[in-house]
Design a protein around this nucleic acid. Structure first.
Lengths: 200, 200
DNA sequence: AATTTGTACGAACGATCGTACAGTTTGTTT
DNA sequence: AAACAAACTGTACGATCGTTCGTACAAATT
């Protein structure tokens, strides 16, 4: 059953939309979701401003779609590979190492997309902030649950998850701001030291 | 020798400038240094836009002055009190606890000013980023040096400082984004657990 | 009293922002 | 081949951005 009937117009539209969102996420990781402007996006992609606008209907919708697109990239690169391992220490290590590599190799040119937009929207109300906060909660919950799957750490998974995520974000922040790759080494040291130490 | 000769015009100008910068830092901690606009600042302070502008000559200078003003507040509230204690564990604890209180009681309405603007400027070039990075380095160096003053931690002060600062920033980020004061409790737990454990 | 200096104002500028809408191109359906 | 639907374009809008400039007024200097 090869050759599913596809409307070539819709196909083209979706591809354009994907290109817009990919570039939007790249820009937003550097300039923020507010710094992201429809006009600039259109210029860089060599399409019309109204063409970009028509895909989303408002800037807020563009921002929300950008967040969702970035989340999908994050999921594919960091979460999914780890979930292929059974719960336990190996899964947790792959999850954390996957995050560090995701940040380190600049999947987004400005470092972790969510670090950038969290800090940008954390103190203002609105749907964009709510969406970002929801993804943040999901990530925290995932790390906590993964920690819970490691017997030696299961006594206080919230606390351990807090510390582990703190190391990751710190590495991202330091390495981007100071162009200092050594931050990742320090984060790895901190992570392994934390994982080696039982809690309770 | 009371009554230093002061030019009343300069005096008035400086006071206006201080009011502008205080409000600018408040706004920037929520909306960022780019979201900070001269027109809005003028409206909120009920002065003319050109009046605000004239004090700085360019938006970039306003941003730089805002960063310096915020640094002064941070210094007074967090750094100076700690430096009044002799080097050692007590000084380190006061420094870290001072930071947590500075963030927790919302000295700036958007949480830590430097967390917000670091994430905003970390990936773009320019004088504002350079200034922010410099303050970041100074803060890191201060924490490292303070750690070095604690014999049990002096073996790897960079690593310990990395972890401690990570806890602080994580608490700020989580509490602002999720309106969750429990983040500070977790940071305190992490800090004390870290301080109680010798390095080496 | 006349002059200089510094703060603050009001009006206007070109550019860019998000948004609206009518028209064109391109592909599908009949 | 005609009718239609979807993606995309061009032009225009009101608002706001940072910035410039000439002016008004108060305080210090002479």
């Amino acid at each position: 059953m090869v050759g599913v009937k596809v409307d070539g117009r819709l196909e083209r539209g979706e591809q354009t939309r994907r290109q817009i969102l990919r570039r939007a996420a790249e820009i937003a990781s550097v300039e923020g979701l507010e710094g992201l402007s429809i006009g600039r996006l259109a210029t860089e992609l060599e399409v019309s401003k109204s063409g970009v606008f028509a895909h989303f209907g408002s800037k807020e919708e563009l921002q929300l779609a950008t967040v969702r697109a970035a989340a999908k990239i994050f999921l594919d690169q960091v979460v999914t590979p780890a979930l292929e391992l059974p719960p336990g220490g190996a899964r947790l290590e792959l999850l954390l190492e996957g995050w560090l590599v995701y940040s380190e190799r600049r999947t987004f040119p400005g470092g972790c997309f969510f670090y950038a937009v969290q800090a940008e929207f954390d103190a203002r109300p609105g749907r964009v902030r709510d969406a970002i906060a929801e993804y943040g909660r999901a990530w925290t919950a995932l790390v906590r649950d993964t920690v819970e799957g490691v017997p030696d750490l299961a006594a206080d998974p919230d606390q351990v998850a807090f510390e582990l995520i703190a190391y990751l974000e710190m590495a991202n922040a330091q390495s981007v701001l100071h162009d200092d790759p050594a931050a990742y080494a320090r984060a790895r040291t901190a992570v392994h030291s934390r994982l080696a130490r039982p809690v309770g």
